[in-house]
Design a protein around this nucleic acid. Structure first.
Lengths: 125, 125
DNA sequence: CCGATATATTACCGTCTGGTAATGCATTAC
DNA sequence: GTAATGCATTACCAGACGGTAATATATCGG
């Protein structure tokens, strides 16, 4: 019986699927065709399969419009699945997040760091 | 050419490897035998192989003492590898982390939440 | 030195996985 | 209606992966 975390991490294991999630996060909902266009090396049907498994994992959801299928990120699933794990390693993230904060402050941003609210990421490419 | 993130996420994809990291994080450095004892269903040599790949990925390091090999978590690698990715989804983590904060406050802990510093995890199993 | 212990290494195997190609099925355009 | 489009589904394949078993190597206890 694969646990909740298991499917989540297995989804994130594939770079193509991570890229798909990235695209949906950056650009908002996209059709299969739009997404497939971002992966010239892959066949469209492959992207469709990835989207199906992501949908099965609850990380994305889809709504039809005509013959297009519009996929969107399901952020709550991502956060809900990873947050406990992230919290477990809380003490170790702090160092890395401090460095992010420092980078932000070098840019003149003076906000107090509360992760998820004021954290700015700049010059991190 | 597998990117840095690729190896990291592939390491995290396997539940046994995640458990190993968890154990090292909770209990500190452990020998192969101690770790293997935590996985009754697996053969010790399998654990050794996992540790070798984790070591190759830089997530753990090892020092010999006699015939024992003591493995310890290499938290900087974990944090350095994941922090950029986590930051990318920053806005989505916030909601989940707020809920963690709420749980902590229900327990009477009044600390201000600054991720990585005061965040307490309780009753999260 | 000898046997036992601790880990690493190698060989090998079934299974899972990511990928393509081909086909099917709606839906839109003409 | 017919053709074309957009996506899903199926079948199939090569390679990677997790695991075991067997063997090797080094270290410790006596």
């Amino acid at each position: 019986m694969p646990s909740n975390s298991d499917v989540l991490f297995r989804m994130l294991a594939d770079p193509t699927r991570r890229s798909i999630l990235d695209l949906l996060a950056e650009r908002g909902p996209m059709t299969v065709g739009q997404l497939a266009a971002e992966f010239p090396d892959l066949v469209a049907s492959g992207i469709s399969k990835h989207l199906m498994s992501l949908r099965a994992a609850g990380l994305v959801s889809a709504t039809r419009r005509g013959r297009q299928q519009i996929y969107r990120l399901e952020p709550r699933a991502l956060a809900a699945g990873l947050a406990p794990w992230i919290a477990k390693y809380e003490q170790y993230w702090s160092a890395a997040l401090e460095r992010l904060r420092d980078l932000a402050e070098e840019d003149g941003a003076k906000e107090e760091l509360t992760f998820g609210k004021n954290l700015r990421r700049k010059r991190l490419k």
